[in-house]
Design a protein around this nucleic acid. Structure first.
Length: 259
DNA sequence: ATGGTTGCCGAGCAA
């Protein structure tokens, strides 16, 4: 089973590009972030015609996540538990049953800039809620993945220019600590389980010619429960997508698991 | 310190 994640930065501007990528990459399950649309405005029919079931959790203009799957999306749940007053659409999960059942959680973790400030406070609080959800997933003792745009640069090797990010919400020590706390519960960073060393990025800013200078960062991640890590076969980053016409600032990441 | 770019949506905000 091939499971992917792609922050598309607006489905209205990117539907064609996403369909092209689906045709090339042929993933079984996809978590999308930043659909920037309400559920009713998501062009579900386009993806259904391409063979995918669709579940969305959108909002107007900002954020918004979705799941696409060739297999049925079962027990869909929208929203990250832990704060009933949180109106930002950043979390969606569902179960996909191949040769075994896999719980797939698609997430769009808050950016948090500027830091310090209320947006950074929201990011840290959100990560604390994510940790609670991660603990509950572990207790299920089943294959599960939390994947998406984490807006976290885990280590200096995950940035081309780490010195540019030292005061940024994506790399501050508190951010890295919160991310590491989830790993230390027993989750596996799927990419780092397969690939070591610097130079692997998933995001290049639209500004300052970041792509042309390969000034990238690795902020899209797939975190696996032990039962899922046992099934891990292969990972990849579809870097070439960043060089296509009217690209997102993120590129797809994916993994193959024996499920 | 600022500005640089993009999407959504129709003026700024978020990234």
């Amino acid at each position: 089973m091939k499971i992917a994640s792609f922050n598309i930065n607006g489905i209205k501007a990117r539907a064609g590009a996403v369909l092209d990528w689906l045709g090339d990459a042929d993933p079984d399950v996809v978590a999308l972030q930043e659909i920037k649309s309400q559920d009713a405005d998501f062009p579900a029919a386009l993806f259904e015609d391409a063979g995918y079931n669709v579940a969305t959790h959108g909002q107007k203009a900002y954020n918004g996540v979705a799941l696409l799957s060739k297999l049925p999306l079962e027990d869909v749940s929208r929203g990250l538990p832990g704060d009933e007053s949180d109106e930002q659409a950043r979390w969606i999960e569902a179960t996909v049953v191949g040769s075994t059942a896999v719980r797939v959680c698609g997430l769009y973790l808050p950016n948090g800039n500027p830091a310090p400030g209320p947006k950074y406070d929201y990011k840290l609080a959100w990560m604390q809620r994510m940790e609670a959800r991660a603990r509950a997933l572990l207790a299920e003792e089943m294959p599960a993945v939390m994947l998406g745009d984490y807006n976290v640069i885990p280590q200096d090797e995950d940035a081309a220019r780490p010195q540019d990010w030292v005061k940024d919400a994506l790399a501050l020590p508190q951010t890295r600590d919160a991310f590491r706390r989830v790993l230390n519960l027993g989750f596996t960073d799927a990419f780092r389980a397969c690939v070591q060393g610097p130079g692997h990025y998933t995001f290049w800013d639209f500004q300052r010619g970041a792509w042309q200078r390969n000034d990238g960062i690795r902020i899209d991640h797939m975190l696996l429960t032990p039962q899922c890590a046992d099934l891990l076969q292969e990972v990849g980053i579809d870097k070439d997508v960043r060089g296509l016409e009217r690209p997102s600032d993120h590129v797809p990441i994916w993994m193959k698991i024996d499920a």
